[in-house]
């Protein structure tokens, strides 16, 4: 009972935060678009649209939480599905919202690129680098969460001894390596990440796993 109450508080707090974040993003987006009209910088308008798409992502995430997680928070497991499946369904709002976030980050990077100009032989592409890194980071983080769920499902429902966990384990390692890249700056991690992703399907074809 206490566990359900704790989940309930967490869900409501998350929904409230998401709604507040969406309202703030809508306001900031409007402000950027107004500024864009005033000074004639198209980049600012694209940045404003990025914030509106971000707000849409937050709303989708909040609605997904309200729809799926609140019954779980109150201890009503629908249709007698296993608890793991219920918990995965509770997170579907995040999954539905992730395309919005991807579009928003991309628009933000485009906005910064468009809004900056080269002075003294520099490249305006460098101005967009922080956001491109953020997009890359969040993309890998979302994939890690999805893959961890797939691994958990495979471990629970998959045939014992099959290659599924190795496959998902390698994919998880590949995206974890990608996540470490901005921190370590070691270019080997790029190749390691690609190699792990490339090798993962081979595990499914291995004699013990492909059957």
């Amino acid at each position: 009972m206490r566990e359900h109450a704790a989940v309930g508080v967490g869900v409501y707090l998350a929904v409230l935060t998401a709604f507040l974040g969406a309202a703030a993003s809508l306001y900031l987006g409007r402000r950027l678009c107004r500024l864009s009209r005033l000074v004639g910088d198209r980049g600012l308008c694209i940045g404003g649209c990025a914030l509106w798409v971000y707000a849409a992502g937050l709303l989708v995430e909040a609605l997904g939480l309200l729809h799926a997680a609140i019954p779980l928070a109150h201890g009503h497991l629908a249709l007698g599905r296993p608890e793991l499946v219920e918990r995965l369904l509770a997170g579907r709002g995040v999954l539905l919202a992730s395309p919005f976030y991807a579009v928003s980050y991309t628009l933000s990077a485009v906005a910064i690129y468009v809004s900056h100009m080269e002075v003294d032989g520099g490249s305006r592409l460098y101005a967009a680098v922080p956001l491109i890194v953020q997009l890359y980071f969040d993309f890998n983080l979302v994939l890690l969460a999805v893959l961890a769920a797939a691994l958990a499902g495979t471990l629970r429902y998959g045939r014992p001894g099959a290659a599924g966990p190795i496959y998902y384990g390698m994919l998880i390692l590949s995206h974890a390596a990608a996540l470490l890249l901005p921190y370590s700056g070691a270019p080997e991690l790029v190749y390691a990440s690609t190699m792990l992703r490339g090798a993962a399907p081979l595990a499914l074809l291995a004699p013990s796993g492909g059957r």
């Binding site: 500024l35 000074v39 910088d41 980049g43 600012l44 910064i112 809004s115 900056h116 100009m117 080269e118 002075v119 003294d120 032989g121 520099g122 490249s123 305006r124 460098y126 101005a127």
Partner: peptide, 8 residues
Amino acid sequence: RRKYRSQA
């Protein structure tokens, strides 16, 4: 002198 700057 900065190498790139926003129009704003």
